[in-house]
Design a binder for these strands. Structure first.
Lengths: 91, 91
DNA sequence: TATATATTTAGACAAATATCTAAATACTTT
DNA sequence: AAAGTATTTAGATATTTGTCTAAATATATA
């Protein structure tokens, strides 16, 4: 099993959850702390933390510590892999 | 919850499995019967049938009965929804 | 009509997933 | 140093998922 296939697995797994897709939609607009992200959902902070971990493992987001906050940012370049796969279906 | 979001859920759920993505890759090349698809994998026919059902519910494939065979075809138009969503991440 | 072939449905089960609460870690402020 | 804030880790649990075998359904052929 190639690294490419593992990456695709991680990406599709990460995208297979409405909450995680919404998190990406939020981060598309601006960087946010874990707490700010959690505040946007009726889900506990530990659960959001877990979702962030899955997105991070898929390389869809990155994080940077800023004092006591952890700021999450979207990594749009990884979407290119999915985009390319999708494009193979265009005729 | 909108119909759009349900559709996206079904699509991402369907794509979140390497076997199902491979089935789509096969059907990209040509229409195949359920048996021909099953022959391409080391998975039982009932399991493949279940995968086909999930792909069909997501509208990613269509099926047509031809005698005792059921021929599956890819529906590329539904990929447009995913494509559009992915494209919102391009800067 | 009986038998063979193609596919799905039903039911079971182990593994993966999303969620929670409680506790731990790390940083900031008083 | 103690208390407060931000976040994650740990552990538990209910639900979902992928797989299997056995049985049912539908079509074709002898």
């Amino acid at each position: 099993m190639s690294k490419y296939i593992n990456a695709m697995n991680d990406i599709f797994k990460a995208l297979n959850d409405a909450t995680r897709r919404e998190i990406l939609d939020l981060l598309k607009q601006k960087d946010l702390s874990a707490g700010e992200i959690a505040d946007a959902f009726n889900i506990s902070k530990p659960s959001i933390s877990h979702h962030l971990d899955i997105l991070k493992r898929a390389d869809l987001i990155t994080s940077e510590k800023n004092g006591q906050f952890i700021i999450y940012s979207i990594n749009t370049t990884i979407m290119e892999d999915v985009l390319q796969w999708i494009l193979t279906f265009k005729q």
